[in-house]
Amino acid sequence: MTGASTDPVERITYGDDPSQFADLHLPEGEPRGVVVVIHGGFWLAQYDYTLGTPLARSLAADGWAALNLEYRRVGNGGGAPTTFDDVAAGIDLLAGPELDLDTTTVVTLGHSAGGHLAAWAASRGRFPQWQGGVDVTHVISQAGVLDLVAADADGLGGGAVAGFLGHTPGPADAPLDPMQQVPLDQPLWCVHGTDDGNVPISQSERYVAAATAAGASAELVTIEGGDHFTLIDADSEAWAQTLGILDTIG
């Protein structure tokens, strides 16, 4: 486990809205790669990038360049497709020549609704409106909402999925739903606590089963006794295990 660093932080904007920015945390020396941190909160405006700040600091201390991404959420101009537009544009910040970052390894790491967006970002190149200059190479989903149809049927977040999409999810939402984008071309890890009362572990279990059956590289990392927020506690064993996954990447 790695504690918080005193890393330099640069705020970069990618649009005119107050939520269109990202904080870039840099390590000492050459980065091992880039991790894009995407916070959760059922896509709602009351949850923001500060949820990801401790993780970004820990990642920088562990040698990674960490882009802690903010985006428009439901209640401040977000929802579909605006939130997806923002995540795509935020990731493409990494291609800016002024940053001088090696994008050979770009990992999206997202928690809860951010896990949904992290997995979605790996498939965005399949759709012309979201194709960009930076490819995602690996995905780590922390208690991610990876099956929008099942999440809505289960009433997760008090109807958060329908609120985010603007309607009940279905086949027409395939470009937005990780489960309907199986198989991904990139390896994906689902880190999930067995005692998660916000996003049940069945979300990750079903996704990994479908992905591996389709020939994709997907792995379930179970945190025994872990709840929803254990995974984003930078002092937790769950976070140490997530850093361990990253050690296998770069």
Rank of each mutant, 00 (worst) to 15 (best):
L148V: 06
F127R: 06
G193C: 04
Q142G: 03
P27R: 05
P18W: 11
G75F: 14
A238N: 04
A216W: 09
T248I: 02
R126E: 12
M179N: 00
V161P: 05
H116D: 05
D227W: 06
G159S: 09
G41Q: 12
V36A: 11
F127I: 04
G114Q: 07
A143T: 07
F164G: 00
Q241W: 00
Q131D: 01
L59N: 13
S202P: 00
D152K: 09
A172R: 12
D23I: 14
V9W: 11
G226N: 01
H25C: 06
V106K: 08
E30F: 05
V87H: 09
A66G: 00
I232G: 03
L109T: 04
A113L: 12
Q129M: 15
V37A: 08
A122T: 02
W64M: 13
N68C: 10
H25V: 13
T137G: 03
E224W: 01
V199R: 00
G75W: 15
M1A: 14
H167A: 11
L243D: 03
L184T: 02
G41M: 12
G163I: 04
E30A: 14
D247C: 03
H138M: 00
F164H: 06
F42N: 03
Q129A: 13
D173V: 06
S112M: 02
E205Y: 02
A234N: 10
G250I: 04
G41F: 15
V134W: 12
T53E: 14
A119W: 15
P187L: 04
G33M: 14
T83M: 05
P8T: 15
W120D: 01
L148Q: 03
N76K: 13
R206Q: 08
L184H: 09
A122P: 02
G110E: 08
